[in-house]
């Protein structure tokens, strides 16, 4: 393997990890911290992407401004959703699932009515750079940078600000937090809005590389949940480590053929063999298998040895 091929493999792994981190961040807050199983989470991605589409196409905003607008809009939607739907249902996880599933269908419906069920695109802004014999899109590096910044920002927010301390206190023990004078309903609402906003940002970041369509969220939601569940109770560290492990496996198996199985009969073109590994399909399978094995060995997730809430 040449130096450039190795560098490309490194970039592919980084890209897989980046996408998993981006998908998992909002969910890590809403599901990982607040323990709300929000089935409308994938529509937050979709809303983020459509915010970019609408802002660039109708309001004529530049792409970057539209991307900054997306988390604000989606965070707002999240806050409204928490107020109207989720708040009466705290402590009733099955009802929350049912209600948010309804919201998910509603959001897809509304987006379809406004934008149509057609696949649309947000044109790409950046070029590519050269690594030996390869070329690689610059935008992928921007994505990684943004994901790292979001991760660091989230850590700083929860670790060093008054809001973060209150939010953590509220989630760890709502009664005690309320007794200490924290407005706990407000903290729940804002934390939920934060999680929605992060998912909205993810949708906006993904918009230029994927097709924007009302049902796009469903393509990502499984990987988001898997990453958060494998991550375990320590939200940020867990998400980062599970995204790293799973992204590494996915990129590696997508790239390399592990072994080939010889099959009988007559083939065009010969020889008759099925190659295991070396395609996106096996990358996804490897990710799922590895997640199952990890959860079997570490039922509480990678960060399960740490106490929750840290």
């Amino acid at each position: 393997m040449g130096l450039d091929t190795a560098a490309m493999l490194g970039l592919e792994i980084l890209n897989s990890i980046t996408i998993l981190v981006l998908l998992a961040l909002g969910l890590a807050v809403i599901f990982g911290m607040m323990r709300i199983v929000n089935l409308a989470q994938c529509e937050f991605f979709t809303l983020g992407a459509f915010t970019v589409l609408a802002a660039t196409r109708w309001a004529g905003l530049p792409l970057w401004a539209a991307m900054c607008l997306a988390p604000v809009v989606v965070g707002g939607v999240g806050i409204v959703l928490e107020r109207l739907v989720i708040r009466p249902l705290y402590g009733r996880p099955l009802d929350v699932m049912l209600a948010t599933w309804g919201v998910s269908l509603l959001l897809v419906g509304v987006i379809t009515v406004i934008f149509g069920a057609v696949t649309q695109g947000v044109p790409f802004a950046l070029g590519s750079f050269r690594v030996g014999q390869y070329q690689y899109p610059q935008y992928r590096i921007v994505m990684t940078t943004v994901a790292a910044a979001m991760m660091a920002g989230l850590y700083a927010l929860f670790r060093y600000t008054a809001f973060g301390r209150r939010a953590r206190a509220t989630i760890a023990n709502p009664e005690m937090a309320a007794a200490m004078g924290i407005n706990t309903p407000r903290m729940f609402m804002l934390t939920f809005g934060l999680g929605a906003g992060l998912a909205g940002a993810t949708g906006a970041i993904l918009a230029p590389i994927v097709g924007v369509v009302p049902t796009m969220g469903a393509l990502y939601i499984a990987r988001a949940f898997i990453t958060v569940v494998v991550g375990g109770p320590v939200v940020l560290l867990g998400t980062l480590s599970s995204a790293s492990v799973l992204g590494f496996i996915e990129a590696l198996i997508s790239r390399f053929s592990l072994f080939t199985i010889q099959t009988g009969g007559h083939c065009t073109p010969p020889p008759c063999q099925i190659s295991i590994g070396g395609s996106a399909f096996f990358g996804q399978i490897a990710l799922l298998i590895f997640a199952i094995v990890l959860l079997r060995l570490l039922p509480r997730g990678i960060s399960g040895f740490r106490r929750a809430g840290q």
Binding site: Q133, Y134, R140, L219, S254, S275, G278, S279, G283, Q284
Partner: peptide, 27 residues
Amino acid sequence: SHVGKVEFIPLDVTDFNATINRIQEAK
């Protein structure tokens, strides 16, 4: 003639990073 191997991609795959790099490799 063919270079590289034919790549079959499931309908719900949206990220083609690895595929695109393999294509570059096969020239």
